[in-house]
Write a protein that binds this DNA or RNA. Structure first.
Length: 551
RNA sequence: GGCCAGUUGGUGAAGUGGCUUAACACACUGCCCUUUCACGGCAGCAUUCAUGGGUCCGAAUCCCAUACUGGUCACCA
């Protein structure tokens, strides 16, 4: 029996050839230098921060070069797939405004001419390639059970030999085709392995876009191509899909670096042009015991991109943060060009860090604070509502009920050169403005400071209310009256006066205005008091200053 | 254990043989400004680039060794 007959025995239903697929998926008609890249996750749950980073870059580079960015689903391992996994990925990408040109757009819909873009739907294509390999003595069926391969491994470990299915360890490699066909006809279970033409003593060199030149021994492992369920393993799927989908750039995590010799070998065997590779450092997390590890889906909530949606951290802020990790020159560029967006920035693989960086929540929050501080009040209002719709219905209703009032609240100390930076996330907004709403200003806990005697507090409040408060006052008048209250009750009306003669006064203007502030808001730290009082209005001010009296 | 890579302050990093007594940003500390907070301003925060050796007039930058960290060695991706 020759190899071709063996191939037909194993894949009797495969009638197309590789050439057929080359015609079905012709070279893309793109400009020179156009990058075709992809995001190719497994539907294992949610999108990870590290995946988002690579998706962001993989989508950005085609955008810069008039190329194509597509989404492919790698679901060849049924055990890992999760219900609604595909939809989760699509939603996460949508949330982060990462748009695809081709690929899977919903559980049931795919767009583009190079599909299907879900690997489990491409079984025949993979098998066509493997059939070719078998027919050309470059692959063979392997009947070893998992127990047997484990056993080989144990022996190799004990003997301190290189681990893997290669050389004389590859028991099924040199079986005769007759024996192979007999065992297949006999119903023995098998997988398909590559008959690796490599030699471990030879070297292969690859130019990685971020890591530069890397040298490896050639692959001589007879890696598994097709599993017993007929579906391919990653290595084969990578070759077939990225060739047929005409991918020019492979962006993936650094955990793939060591598979490079396999992938290079596969491309060489088929005489396909190898794509360019960029292996990205993984995002790390430091534990309390100072050990570094990969940011983990299970242990770290911030690893899931849905976390940012929940917290209400603007997607732009997350993307800006990821770009500062991705390209070290981005941050300086962004600070120098505050009105530009990520789209205006030219990404460079060379500027990528090779080692994984630690995930820095402080930095992210700083970026987010700055970002939100630059938004217009109406934008803050709308985006807070959008967030609250999912996560805080009470806040949502208040914002809708008091629309103009709320927008004015968001505008306090905003329209100025250096706006306030109170909010790092939309989930923090309620805790910053709640006291402006009567519905929330109940059973409050007053944080009085230096003046905490209730009689003195009332004296200040009542004097202010009865003699000085006028809602029409401008800020200057308002504050000069505040000084008069202080003076009349024996407090220094200027801070400097108090500092010169502290014994002459009961306290200073700051102590007095603090009483008003706390009486009105219950808090000792608020934005500008004058602005707050303007919005609170006469009625509410009267009411709130008088509640204290009752207490 | 084999193979591959990485190692510059608390963090992200700039730096590719002299311009570096190591930029910038975050965090932190102190002071100032100030009716609180925030903003802002000023100052501090690596005499040293994992360690040891070498090349050189000169090294964070080049070479070697060691250490440590990470990745990988599945019918997972």
């Amino acid at each position: 029996m020759n190899n071709k007959e063996l191939a037909n025995l194993i894949f009797p239903d495969i009638t197309k050839t590789i050439e057929d697929y080359e015609k079905i998926y012709p070279a893309r008609n793109l400009n020179e230098g156009a990058v075709v890249s992809r995001f190719a996750p497994s539907p294992t749950g949610f999108v990870h921060m590290g995946s988002l980073l690579s998706a962001l870059i993989a989508s950005k580079v085609p955008k810069e070069t008039n190329g194509i960015f597509y989404l492919r689903i790698e679901d060849t391992d049924g055990k890992r797939s999760v219900e609604n996994g595909i939809q989760g990925i699509i939603d996460d990408l949508k949330n982060f405004e990462i748009n695809i040109d081709e690929g899977v757009v919903s559980e049931t819909k795919q767009i583009g001419n190079y599909g299907p873009y879900i690997q489990s739907e491409r079984k025949e294509i993979y098998q066509t390639f493997v059939k070719y390999l078998i027919a050309n003595d470059l692959a063979y069926p392997c009947f070893c059970t998992e127990e047997e391969t484990n056993e080989i491994r144990t022996i190799q470990e004990a003997a301190k030999e290189r681990i893997g299915y290669y050389g004389h360890w590859a028991k099924c490699r040199n079986l005769s085709n007759e024996e192979r066909s007999n065992r297949i006809k006999n119903g023995d279970k098998y997988i398909i392995r590559l008959k690796s033409p490599g030699n471990f003593n030879n070297k292969v060199v690859i130019e990685d876009l971020v890591r530069g030149r890397i040298e490896f021994p050639e692959n001589d492992l007879d890696i598994v191509l097709i599993k017993s369920d007929g579906l391919p393993l990653y290595h084969l799927a990578h070759l077939v899909d990225d060739h047929l989908m005409r991918t020019t750039h492979i962006l993936r995590g650094e955990e793939w670096v060591s598979s490079l010799p396999v992938h290079l070998q596969l491309f060489k065997i088929f005489n396909f042009k190898t794509p360019k590779y960029a292996h990205l450092g993984v995002i790390m997390k430091i534990d309390d015991d100072q050990t570094r590890r990969k940011l983990s889906k299970r242990k770290d909530p911030e690893a899931a991109v849905s976390y940012y949606h929940e917290k209400g951290i603007p997607v732009e802020a997350v993307k800006i943060y990821l770009m500062t990790i991705a390209n070290s020159n981005f941050e300086a560029w962004y600070n120098a060009n505050p009105n530009k967006t990520i789209d205006d920035f030219t990404f460079s693989f060379k500027k990528m860090s090779e080692s994984g960086s630690l995930f820095d929540v402080d930095k992210l929050m700083n970026i987010s604070k700055n970002y939100i501080s630059k938004l217009k009040a109406i934008e803050v209002y709308e985006r807070t509502i959008k967030w609250a719709k999912f996560y805080d219905q009470q806040l949502e209703q208040l914002l809708i009920k008091y629309q103009d009032y709320s927008i004015k609240i968001f505008n306090i100390e905003r329209e100025q050169k250096k706006p306030r930076k109170d909010f790092g996330a939309f989930c923090e907004i309620k805790s910053g403005i709640w006291y402006m709403y009567d519905e929330l200003f109940i059973n409050v806990d007053y944080q009085f400071q230096t003046i905490s005697d209730i009689n003195e507090i009332n004296k200040i409040n009542q004097l202010y209310l009865s003699k000085y408060y006028n809602e029409l006052d401008d800020k200057e008048t308002w504050f000069s009256k505040m000084r008069l209250v202080a003076f009349e009750l024996g407090y220094a009306k200027e801070m400097s006066d108090y500092k010169e003669n502290p014994d002459k006064y009961k306290g200073h203007i700051g102590d007095v205005s603090m009483v008003i502030r706390v009486s009105l808001t219950s808090l000792s730290a608020t934005p500008d008091l004058y602005e707050i009082m303007k919005l609170l209005g006469k009625e509410r001010i009267n009411q709130r200053l008088n509640i204290i009296k009752v207490k």
